[in-house]
């Protein structure tokens, strides 16, 4: 480890720890927490979708399972939803095992469609299984803490865990295996990589982190219903757009994308009222058309354009 590789994370950690003392109002703190939630969820998706190349359109399933694990503990056993933070990730991971075994038989668009269908099945089952889940009525709890500060630090810890996991995984042998599977699955297999097993190694931590985020979401927002936490458009697809905007297969892609997404969402909502999703949709189209690898992925390109330098000799964009 060189000094430089520690520098950026340390600075970011210090800034993140001090930030809530500079922004004391509940509103900016809420925004920070939402950014952290999306950053964690995005990091989880990025591990599977960005590095291993298995584009999942059903990550809401794990987010929702985490959230409902916490909610149902309270509903049926009357114990604190915080225990869901322990249970939720494991439920999500346990469910991910059969899902992975089924879906990893499929490739590319077929895999995407299978995960999309699974995510929708979870939403429909949790909506219709009224006896067990209260259906569309959702689950409402009382917030534990009166201020945002404890939530902020918990969210920060979860995000830190996600970043740590991601970095450990992608800088190990596993990371190279993931990328090789993404770039050419047949070649990877012919080199002796058991691709299904290594896809699982990307999938399980991803589901675990998504479940953890979901359980935290339950505790923080204090209300869930199937249409929110299992949403195809607002969770499964949005997390892909967030990572896409920030930078696929880039450790900072998810946090940057999350910050852009939440910030834009708030700004657009203030300026444009009901047209905020429209503006966001237009922005998504523009980003994909002009920055196909996201903000972090095209950083070199952006810098060159901004400072009007000549393009570097051999495609200097970070990949």
């Amino acid at each position: 480890m060189t000094a430089k590789s520690w520098l950026t994370p340390t600075i970011i950690a210090v800034v993140a720890l001090v930030l809530p003392f500079l922004l004391r109002d509940p509103y900016p703190q809420h925004i920070l927490i939402m950014i952290l939630i999306w950053a964690t969820l995005g990091t989880a998706w990025n591990l599977l979708g960005g590095y291993a190349g298995q584009v999942s359109f059903g990550h809401a399933a794990f987010f929702g399972l985490g959230a409902y694990s916490a909610g149902l503990l309270f509903l049926h056993l009357k114990i604190s939803t915080w225990w869901g933070m322990l249970l939720g990730p494991f439920v999500a991971t346990a469910v991910a095992v059969p899902i992975g075994l089924i879906c990893f038989r499929l490739r590319g668009p077929y895999f995407a469609l299978a995960t999309l269908a699974l995510g929708e099945i979870f939403r429909l089952v949790f909506t219709n299984w009224v006896k067990f889940t209260h259906g569309a009525q959702g689950i409402l709890i009382l917030s534990t803490f009166p201020t945002k500060l404890p939530y902020y630090y918990i969210a920060l810890a979860i995000w830190g865990l996600a970043m740590f996991t991601l970095n450990r995984l992608i800088n190990s042998k596993l990371g190279y295996y993931f990328v090789s599977i993404r770039e050419d699955q047949d070649a990877a297999e012919s080199l002796g990589i058991p691709t299904t097993r290594y896809k699982m190694y990307a999938f399980l931590p991803s589901a675990f982190l998504a479940g953890l985020t979901g359980a935290f979401y339950m505790n923080y927002i204090a209300f869930i219903d199937p249409h929110v936490v299992f949403s195809l458009g607002d969770i499964s697809v949005m997390v892909i757009l967030v990572v896409m905007m920030g930078g696929v297969a880039n450790p900072w892609g998810a946090p940057v994308g999350a910050a852009i997404y939440i910030a834009l969402n708030e700004i657009f909502r203030a300026w444009l009222g009901s047209a905020n999703v429209l503006a966001f949709g237009i922005l998504v189209c523009l980003v994909i058309l002009f920055l196909p690898n996201g903000v972090m992925g095209e950083l070199g390109q952006i810098r060159r354009t901004a400072f009007r330098q000549k393009p570097a000799a051999a495609g200097g964009g970070q990949k």
Binding site: V55, R182, L241, M244, G281, V284, C285, N293
Partner: peptide, 18 residues
């Protein structure tokens, strides 16, 4: 040129949103 070939799919998501 992009890392994921699913870029076009996501563009259609953007179009759907719009």
């Amino acid at each position: 040129d992009s890392i994921l070939p699913e870029n076009q799919v996501l563009l259609t998501v953007g179009i759907m949103l719009v």
